[in-house]
Every structure is written in structure tokens, then in C-alpha cells.
Amino acid sequence: MTSSCGRSTRRCDPGAVTVESALVIPALVLFFGALLCGLGAFAAQSLCQDAARAGARAAARGEPAEEVSRVARDIAPGNARVEVGRDGAFVRVDVSVPSWATGVLGLAVEGRAVAHVEPD
């Protein structure tokens, strides 16, 4: 004799699929959310590095610090912090973005570039 589930040796438990789905779907949502946050941090990291390089090139050409900061801010993400420093014949440009991922995940979203200042 077979049951309504089609098998005679196993008990039919239609609620098992619901419970498994209730456990798996939130885990998948968290996984994809973390994946998207990681991709966002990677994109911001790339923008910060590109901004630091552009700022360092401008500083190497002899542009004033305000112009170097403007060049870097044009490329960097919206809330980026730009710092320009000079050490002898070298100029350093640091671009960083405050992010919740920095504290929670330990991801630093920043870029740094150093360039040799060209002679006048």
C-alpha cells in the first residue's frame, strides 16, 4: 500500500521543503549582500588608487596643492579625503574613503601614489 506521497516505506513530510527554504533563502541573501559590498569596496579602492595617481602626476608637474587636491577629488568617490605631502624631491598623495566596511570587515579603502617632482 502506498501513501499519498507515492512511497510506501517513507513518511510524507510536506513541511520539510518549507523549513529548508526558510533556512537557505536568508543565507543566500546574506551571501549575495556581502558579495555586493565587497565589489563596491573593490570599485572604491580602484577609484582611490586612480585618483592618487592622477594627483601625484599633477604634483610632479609642479601644480599647487589645491590643484592637486582638486584633480584627485574629481576622480575619487564623493566623500574621499585627499592628503598631499612633500618630502624633498618626492610628493605623496593619499586618497581614502570612510566606509562602514573598514570597521566591520577590516577593509581599507584607500590609495597612495608617490612621484618624483620634475625640475622647473
Rank of each mutant, 00 (worst) to 15 (best):
T2N: 11
T2A: 09
R7Y: 07
R7C: 10
R7I: 13
T9I: 13
T9V: 08
A16T: 13
T18L: 15
T18V: 15
V19G: 05
A22C: 12
A22L: 10
A22T: 14
L23C: 13
V24W: 04
P26E: 00
P26S: 08
P26Q: 06
L28W: 09
F32N: 03
G33A: 12
G33C: 12
G33H: 05
A34F: 14
L36H: 05
C37Q: 12
G38K: 00
G38E: 06
A41T: 07
A41Q: 03
A41R: 01
A44Q: 03
Q45R: 10
Q45F: 08
S46H: 12
S46Y: 05
L47V: 08
C48M: 06
Q49H: 06
A51N: 04
A51M: 05
R53I: 11
A54H: 00
A54R: 02
G55C: 06
A56P: 01
A56S: 09
A56T: 07
A58M: 07
A59P: 05
A60D: 08
R61A: 14
G62W: 01
G62F: 04
E63A: 15
E67K: 07
S69Q: 15
R73E: 10
R73Q: 15
D74K: 13
D74M: 08
I75A: 04
A76H: 01
G78D: 11
A80H: 04
A80K: 03
E83C: 14
V91C: 02
V91W: 02
R92Q: 10
R92I: 10
S96L: 02
V97D: 00
S99R: 00
S99M: 05
W100I: 15
A101W: 00
A101G: 06
T102F: 01
G103H: 08
G103P: 02
G106C: 07
A108K: 04
A108L: 03
A113D: 11
A113P: 09
V114K: 00
E118D: 13
E118G: 11
P119T: 10
D120S: 14
